[in-house]
Design a protein around this nucleic acid. Structure first.
Length: 259
DNA sequence: ATGGTGGTAACACCA
């Protein structure tokens, strides 16, 4: 089973890239972030025409997440608990039946948090604490659980071409990195790192200043696996070539295969 | 020093 996370950076502007990629990559489950669309305007017909079921949690203008799947989910839950006043659409979870039992898949778009001297940074840290509590609860289910998405955190210096350039950025603050480490310490495996722990493995290249051409990237898109999911990890890959397509997202698809 | 989106026709917001 192939599961992919991809920050699409606007699904309506990217529908041609998305449908071309679906046909090439042939994933079973796709976690999208930054769809930047309300549910009613999501281009579902084009995706359903390729045989995919569509579940969205959209928002006007910004944010928004979705899960595409060849098989319909048994259950879908929208939103991350823990802060009633939070109206940003950044979290959707779906449960799927498989031949070997249920798997739970989350598509998440963690807050960017910049600039760090504004309310945006504490919002990011609160969101990460909420996610940690949520993950603790779900781990108790002892089921294969995949937390896939744009984490907006550079975990280690080797996850950036120029780590020194990110020292004042919310993505590389000690508090952000520690919160991600706490999540991993609950028992999650970073699928990509468990397969290739090399410097220069990036998932995002800015549109500006020729970042892609210079490979000036960062790795901020992760699939975090519960022990039950990690036990079934067969492979992980970054579909980097998609960044060179016409009208690309600034992120690329990150994939895993489970047995 | 680019790109998507929104609410309008140049500019603000977000990444």
């Amino acid at each position: 089973m192939k599961i992919v996370t991809w920050n699409i950076n606007g699904v309506k502007a990217r529908i041609e890239v998305l449908t071309a990629w679906l046909q090439e990559s042939n994933p079973d489950i796709v976690c999208l972030q930054e769809i930047k669309s309300v549910d009613e305007q999501f281009p579902r017909a084009e995706i359903e025409a390729l045989g995919y079921h569509v579940e969205t949690h959209g928002q006007k203008g910004f944010n928004g997440v979705a899960i595409l799947s060849k098989k319909s989910p048994d259950e879908v839950i929208r939103g991350l608990p823990g802060e009633d006043s939070d109206e940003q659409s950044r979290f959707i979870e779906a449960v799927f039946s498989t031949e070997t039992g249920a798997i739970r898949v989350v598509s998440l778009y963690l807050p960017n948090g910049n600039p760090i001297d504004t309310e945006k940074f504490p919002y990011k840290l609160r969101w990460m604490e909420r996610m940690e509590r949520w993950a603790e609860d779900r781990l108790a289910l002892e089921e294969p659980l995949i937390l896939a998405g744009d984490y907006n955190v550079i975990a280690q210096p080797k996850d950036a071409k120029h780590p020194e350039a990110w020292l004042n950025d919310a993505l590389f603050q000690p508090e952000s990195r520690q919160a991600l480490r706490r999540l991993e310490n609950l028992g999650f495996t970073d699928a990509t790192r468990s397969v290739t722990d090399e410097a220069g493995t990036y998932t995002f290249w800015d549109y500006q200043a020729g970042a892609w051409q210079k490979n000036n990237g960062i790795r901020i898109d992760y699939l975090m696996l519960s022990p039950e999911a990690a036990n079934r990890l067969a492979s992980a890959s970054i579909e980097k070539h998609v960044r060179a397509w016409e009208k690309p997202s600034d992120h690329v698809p990150v994939a895993i295969a489970l047995t």
